[in-house]
Design a binder for these strands. Structure first.
Lengths: 231, 231, 231, 231
DNA sequence: CATGAATGAGACTTCATTCAT
DNA sequence: AATGAATGAAGTCTCATTCAT
């Protein structure tokens, strides 16, 4: 990294510098929390990695917990925003579902297992006091897109109506998270594309209105038959 | 992990009294770890609840971590034993599967959410050093019965062969654990019987050899193959 | 006084050695608090002077504030006990009063100005949270002997009845404390005997039933009444 | 460490705006010190209440202690000035005394208990380093008017000569301060007028030349007798 | 064997104060 | 002159762990 000569940066807007610090701390904080977990993360370590005084961390965040809450919140924010904005609202429920599973897995993999594991485990652990309260709400917002998807799918008659939405949710998120844990534990790589495809193929039939599936197959066969006949 | 530092290994306490002490500590340890999580559990608290000196705990266990490992190991042991011994080996794969899911859920509910949550969250968290290593192996043994079940089911031709066993495992354990987390988080009660029945009904068709649909698809493939051959 | 946070319940140290430690800490604590005041006293310094680890202090006292409360309480205890037990109950109110003032001054002088100043100033300062609550009660118990003395003196008709007891109290304790402050501030020596004598001589006439003067006034009233009747 | 490190002594800020700043800081400083005590007052809080930067405070005062000294000095200045200027020099010692007690109590009550308590407790506490030195001198100037009063009263033969002036001072200021403390502690209201009257009535006879009192009564009786006789 | 006692190591947090801009 | 930013120094408190008895 030879180039990048330190441009004098005349008139560095004071405001900008401060915001940069906040970003630095959040970035490194995310990194360290993901790496060590809540209890093993120390403000000392965070400061050390940025190369600032420990006291500076406290200038921008009122404490370790607040920082952690911000780290987690930001991450949830990213996910929920992506999920909420990217969702193809006009597509069929199946397409939406496929998109959701795929995006979900990709997001986790982009971040690496660290933060993911952190939120899943620490977030659920006892004893962090208010941290739990914050996370419960975040968790709710985090699953909202899926719940919406499922609800509207049911309204459209594309999803079966004989099992509760929350059971459906567990059926979808459960395997996803389990696969991620597996990966975290064993260190095995996970192909998001491939995994998403498999999961969708496996889980969708369970969620879908049975007739839908039959119809889908019949249509496929008819299409093919016609194509063959025409050829 | 051969190392196993030379724990003083005081004369194996074969005395009945000593064994009782160990059992006491393990029992209370399990209780406290389940209640407070690893980091918030203190040796002081464990000793206090038994009514012994803190130092005594260290007479029987070389440290907090070792105790924790024993607590978790014992719990896994119980589960694995129950699952291994109770499994109806002569029954159909479906029956075995039903039994597995049902027993699994029941075991968790008997123990209460405490230890379950502890193992699922803390057990997976980072930073406990060797704890993780131990848990990976435990995890493997813990899922062994299910893997056996799935493998033999496949051999018998009762389970589909086009998806990996590990994916199947995630498909089964994922929803179970997700439902348990939900219960831990919301405090809602969970009817083991009812939940097990629902889960089996939902997941089984996905795992099973889809004979009829498969037959249909085979026919389709043959049709396509012929068409292509004709072209 | 809400919640009474779950004091960590450190193992109750009850043996002789343990009691000695408690005494050591209280003794040195009294010394340091007296010398430096609450805020400037550090647990480090207390430990250092005893020659023990700082952590040991926290084995015996759950925190700096608790230690301080104990130090002050003990001191009040000493004073109140002395005042309550030594008080010559059979003597005249005057004798009791004389004894009280004398003893009071002596006690302060024995302790040296340190703790006295500490209690008078810190005890009254803001911001120590619950410390204040504790002190208010101690203050009440501390002035109780004097109040009793004054009350019984009034009942016996030896003290005037036209001024409130609390005003009398201020009239007695005010000058005593002011003299002590003066001594603290200027470092001047104070002869307890001599000072006590002077104070008693000065204040007593103000408190006592002014029999002679009263008699004179009664005569005057009679004279007036006669004069008016004659008119 | 008396040395008095070379405070940058920025060009004496003679501008009106600068003076306003100093006044603002002193005003708010007085407020906060009175409210929180010395140790609990932070420069941050002072700056916050004024709406300026913390660093600005240090532009005008070389540190927290210096500011505190100024706050206390100013307050003493006010009191001493008021006492010195308002004193009715031509009146009898009794009148002067009455005026002094009354004014004194009123001043405290005007300021509220805050600063009063602050000066009395913190001002006397240890550990503020040079603060104490400053206060001793202030204390001297503060009691000067009373001492003058007492001295001249004695010269005029209106006050007894058998007790030291400093004892008299304690006899006067002690009860006043004790009453104020009582008020601070209990939160009870205090009627300055009424309290001053009572105090004067109680303490004056003790200070006065005994003959003076007798003379006073005799004169009263004579006046009455004459009046009655004449009627 | 059991334990009372002690503690080293380190965590989080606060705040007066400095300095470049 | 004013301040945004940064920090050194210090303080309280926790806890797993050791060791002599």
């Amino acid at each position: 990294m030879p180039a990048a000569k330190p441009v004098p940066q005349r008139r560095a807007p004071a405001r900008a510098k401060s915001e940069q610090r906040v970003r630095d701390i959040l970035r490194v904080g995310r990194e360290v929390f993901a790496e060590l977990g809540y209890e093993h993360t120390t403000t000392t370590e965070i400061a050390r990695r940025i190369g600032i005084s420990e006291a500076t961390v406290f200038t921008y965040f009122s404490g370790k917990r607040e920082l952690c809450v911000r780290v987690i919140s930001d991450w949830y924010e990213e996910i929920t925003t992506t999920l909420a904005e990217g969702m193809p609202r006009e597509a069929t429920t199946f397409e939406q579902f496929r998109w959701f599973v795929h995006t979900h897995l990709s997001l986790f993999l982009v971040e690496g297992t660290g933060l993911c594991a952190f939120v899943l485990s620490e977030g659920r652990a006892k004893g962090h006091g208010e941290l739990v309260d914050v996370l419960v709400e975040l968790q709710r917002r985090y699953t909202a897109p899926l719940m919406d998807l499922l609800a509207s799918g049911r309204e459209r008659g594309e999803l079966r109506g004989d099992i509760s939405l929350s059971l459906m949710r567990s059926l979808v998120l459960g395997p996803i998270e389990h696969l991620l844990w597996e990966r975290v534990g064993t260190g095995k790589k996970l192909d998001a594309e491939e995994t998403a495809r498999s999961l969708v193929a496996l889980v969708w039939p369970t969620l879908a209105q049975p007739e839908q599936e039959l119809a889908r197959l019949r249509e496929l066969r008819r299409t093919l038959a016609q194509a063959l006949a025409g050829a």
